[in-house]
């Protein structure tokens, strides 16, 4: 895991790729995907925090000292579930929005909403 290309840095790059997607895309579906990429990047970052390559999975009760830190792993399962449910809600809303306004463009939706 040495060098500049390690999981931590890759997840940070991924996070800002996602942020770029949020900033530059007017398509709602792409926004949802981009936010998801940011979420996944943050989860990847947290899972690999303070991790060394020689660690073993935290299963069983032998050799506890060599085990990876179980706390981030436990927390990130929660974060993944939350990410899925939030995405599900936003896609549901998007379907309704698309049916009503007939566009998936943030700007066009704003104008159609505000101008009646």
């Amino acid at each position: 895991m040495g060098g500049i290309i390690n999981v931590q840095n890759v997840s940070l790059v991924l996070f800002f790729v996602g942020l770029y997607g949020v900033l530059s895309n007017r398509n709602i579906i792409k926004s949802i995907i981009a936010v998801n990429i940011m979420d996944v990047a943050a989860i990847l970052f947290l899972i690999t925090v303070n991790r060394r390559p020689d660690q073993i999975p935290p299963v069983g009760s032998e050799n506890i000292a060599a085990m990876a830190d179980p706390l981030p792993q436990a927390l990130m399962i929660t974060a993944i579930v939350i990410g899925i449910s939030v995405t599900a809600v936003s896609i549901t809303l998007f379907i309704g929005l698309f049916r009503r306004h007939g566009t998936s463009d943030w700007e066009k939706v704003v104008h159609r909403v505000d101008r009646g």
């Binding site: 996602g18 936010v35 979420d39 989860i43 939030v86």
Partner: peptide
């Protein structure tokens, strides 16, 4: 959700 993605990375 976007804001909370920031928050999650902050937690990391």
């Amino acid at each position: 959700i976007l804001a909370m993605a920031f928050f999650l990375l902050g937690i990391g």
